Computed example of a mutant assay.
Amino acid sequence: MNKHLLFGTAALLLGCAFSDSLQANLLVTPTRVELDEKRAKSAVFSLVNKGTKTSRYEIYFEEKRMLPSGDFVTLSKDDGIAKANRAIDEALISQMQATSIAKYLRYSPRRLTLEPEQGGRVRLALRTPKTLPEGEYRSYIVFHQIPLAPKVQNNNTSKDGQSLSLTISAYMKIAVPIFLRVGDLKADISLNTGKLELSQGQQSLQVSLHRQGARSSYGDLEVINPVNNQVLGSLKNAAVYSELNEKSYSVPLSETLSPGSELIIRFTESDKLFEHQRIETRLRF
């Protein structure tokens, strides 16, 4: 009797650490979607299979929230809270469920098979009740590679003569945030700079984004030399989401600073945000 075991599925999330080779196998655009009840009520995702083999993708929604560490917690799409996250505070779980917009989104197709270098589209539409309370809502659309068919490798025979088979596969999983903001939501943002750090000969500056208000904030961080306006370091899409009041980032610098150096630290919010801001602070070492 043969016992076939499928083992070792690796889930990879956009915005988290993952294998470059696996990430390159699927190109998804856009990487963030902004919806509102008046104009932007739909979106189209373009997918391109950049791998060398035919791949199939399952498409569904997940609920995630950002942690101060930069990691994300995820509610299982099957049973509410994932087994690995049983210790999550119940208040956070309730907040995640209350701010989900998955139930107001319709999309097609639910599965997609792409040949190498072939592209496909997933269309999404928003349907909200008129009584939806003011606030920021967010869910994640997930593009999850699934096996076309199991492949058996590494056959071994056990002591009782039974054949054991083990297949190890890595399946890509990319999650894209979808935002809905009801009402003119504002946020107050401030910057706090920490110490300079040196690693393998390169300096980096610790910068914290502080957020208060009804909406998330995200944009670009820049570290600038005020003498010649040269950008010494930058980070795209630095974010502090509505569930957090603070998020810290390390900005690598292209030059080593000498004592007495002065810097401008600038955060420019996305122009898609209501009353987006540009915040600057100066720092001398």
Rank of each mutant, 00 (worst) to 15 (best):
A175R: 00
K195Q: 14
G161L: 06
F179C: 12
D184A: 09
S208H: 02
Q212F: 05
E197K: 05
P177C: 07
G183F: 01
N156G: 12
S190N: 12
K173M: 13
G161M: 04
I168Q: 10
N192V: 11
S199P: 00
S169G: 10
L196D: 10
G194S: 05
Q202F: 04
T193D: 05
A187K: 03
S158Y: 00
Y171Q: 15
L164I: 14
R215C: 15
L191V: 01
N192D: 15
G213W: 00
G201E: 12
S158F: 03
L164Y: 02
L166E: 08
S163Y: 06
N156T: 14
L185V: 09
Q200S: 15
G201V: 08
R215N: 13
K173W: 02
L198T: 15
L185E: 10
Q153R: 06
M172F: 07
Q200Y: 07
K173I: 00
L205Y: 03
S208D: 13
Q202M: 08
L166F: 10
V182T: 11
A170E: 08
L164R: 04
P177D: 06
S190D: 10
L164T: 04
G213D: 02
V182D: 03
Q206T: 07
I189V: 14
S190G: 07
S165F: 07
Q162V: 11
A214G: 02
S208Q: 10
